[in-house]
């Protein structure tokens, strides 16, 4: 029994140590630095909470939070709508089911950065050329060049890439719906719309929860998309929080200040995740 316990300890202790070293320790350091005015090199002083107060006065930080949330919420909703639709389609009686499924999953295996470069080209050169060819001058400008609309370009690319994974999750959920439930319903004469809301959706509700949480969380971290498409511009209109912390922390020499920003971001994410799980789980129970 003793040796068994020792074996279990040996199985976990190295992992715990590594995890602490590479994850928890930097996290604590980050919190520590957030109370200093460190540039990333050289001398530093404690500055108390002043970094935190300054973040709240920082228009660039506000704009980053605004953009990130706008982008994440819109993308999450769109991704879930499209992937649910595609999954329902793939789950019905269609031809070429396996091949279609393979194609719809394809974007998920590609590097976001490279996909971003390709979309950058599409928005900058291809779409304007196409618009000119078919004579729609309204579309001939690059949407990535407009501070008001550039975020839409980022959403389009993000949705294109992310629908794949969520589709597979929904498809997995739909396959847990037993076929005889449908048959019973169609005998009752329920129309497809009703059938979806009354039968299918409640069964896949847990997948809906997971998908919403996962998609929102990954979109709140958005980084590669921005670097590839806009670099945060025009102005700061598409600068996400991750990009701001990266570029402000290194380029601006604001290591301590951006650490404070990151701590705030951390708190926001935790609060949001808890809130989201509560709401969605309540829904599930009600259904």
């Amino acid at each position: 029994m003793q040796s068994k316990q020792r074996a279990f300890l040996f199985m976990t202790i190295p992992a715990v140590l590594l995890f602490f070293l590479f994850h928890t320790y930097p996290l604590l350091q980050g919190v520590f630095y957030s109370f200093t005015n460190w540039r990333g090199y050289g001398d530093w002083n404690f500055v108390g909470f002043s970094n935190y107060f300054n973040v709240f006065k920082d228009m660039r930080a506000w704009s980053a939070y605004g953009f990130t949330f706008q982008f994440a919420i819109v993308s999450t909703i769109l991704v879930n709508i499209f992937s649910l639709l595609v999954a329902l389609g793939l789950n019905s009686n269609i031809k070429f089911q396996k091949s279609l499924r393979a194609i719809y999953f394809l974007p998920n295996i590609l590097s976001i950065l490279i996909v971003g470069f390709i979309f950058q080209f599409i928005f900058t050169l291809f779409l304007p050329q196409l618009a000119e060819l078919i004579g729609v001058t309204a579309l001939s400008t690059n949407i990535l060049g407009s501070p008001d609309h550039a975020w839409i370009g980022v959403v389009i690319m993000a949705v294109w890439q992310a629908v794949a994974f969520n589709t597979i999750l929904y498809l997995a959920g739909l396959q847990t719906v037993p076929a005889d439930v449908y048959e019973a319903a169609s005998i009752d004469g329920a129309n497809p719309w009703k059938r979806f809301w009354k039968i299918t959706f409640p069964i896949i509700a847990p997948f809906f929860t997971i998908n919403m949480v996962l998609a929102l969380k990954s979109f709140l971290m958005v980084f590669d998309h921005i670097i590839a498409l806009t670099g945060g511009g025009p102005g700061y209109s598409t600068e996400s929080i991750s990009v701001l912390i990266y570029s402000g922390g290194f380029e601006g020499g604001q290591f301590g200040y951006q650490s404070a920003n990151a701590v705030i971001y951390f708190i926001v994410i935790v609060a949001l995740s808890v809130f989201q799980l509560r709401i969605l789980q309540k829904r599930e129970v009600q259904q």
Partner: peptide, 16 residues
């Protein structure tokens, strides 16, 4: 000063 990002603010100003 480093990190001012004047170019981004100017870019935005040109547009607005």
């Amino acid at each position: 000063p480093p990190g001012l990002g004047a170019e981004n603010m100017i870019q935005e100003f040109l547009y607005s």
